[in-house]
Amino acid sequence: MTVGRDSPTPNGRKPAASVDEPDTRNDEPDARNDELDARNDELDARVDEPALRAHEIVKRYGATIALDRVSLDVARGSCVALVGESGSGKTTLLRCFNAMVRPDAGSVVVGGRPVASFDPVVLRRGIGYVQQEGGLLPHWSVLRNVALVPWLRGEADAEEQARGALDQVGLSPGRFGDRWPRDLSGGQRQRVAIARALAGSPEIILLDEPFGALDAITRSELRRSFHNLRAGMGVTSLLVTHDLHEAVELADEIAVMKAGALMQVGRPHELLNAPAHEYVEELLERAGIG
């Protein structure tokens, strides 16, 4: 269980001076941000708890069972990859952790506290999120996009944080900050999306096929820089991918899902040496691993 972050104190907040963009200033008073502080302190306190825990969760969409009594722990600072075919429930499971999906049964715990007890907005502002399409706001500049979470939290240095995050993902804030998302390449857009997820210095980030829409070269390049970045920051990551190579390269542990159920969770070599299920074996074979 890897613990520890070498990044500075999360959410270092200064007394409100205005964010640099007058028309984009977040002037909505938000008491929720106080709750956020409390939550992060709590999170720091419980080092022995897994950062993310799903216990026996069930999610149905009509007659379809998307998650069938799934349990999963993600240790602090580790990276777990959820792999499986599309429709296997990976994304649904991922979205349970930031309250984008409410399970029908079972419990989801983040930082030792049940997700259901959070104001979802507060919870989400503390968890980074990257989706396959990037999901950048097309009418916001790159810098403003990256500054989203600190800005939502009302932090005065939102823009500085955003510049820092852009640097981290290898994009020069001076060169890219003022561009529109549509003026970037696909790879650059995903870098921006990752920067946005990291800009608030979250302890946890959720990534849903973050490199899925990229060409092979950009993809492996981005994968490598993400790997280095993550190793440096020690941020707890849950990653959805359908690519086993990606999982092996990035993750400490791999969780194999099929039809809403978790087949096996383990370190890559454990999966390889002792596949718990035919399906896991088949999956490894198909990926040419093994």
């Binding site: 909505e28 979205r95 930031n98 984008m100 907005v121 507060v122 919870l123 989400r124 502002r125 503390g126 980074g128 999120y129 989706q131 399409e133 990037g134 999901g135 950048l136 706001l137 097309p138 009418h139 989203l148 979470v149 939502l152 939290r153 999306a193 946005r196 997820a197 959720l206």
Partner: peptide
Amino acid sequence: AAVDAARALGMTPAQLLRHVRFPL
């Protein structure tokens, strides 16, 4: 995608409407 990401990163419904949905 933009709306989903903005929501997942903590925009309230009112913020989503004002800053994302309506301008778009």
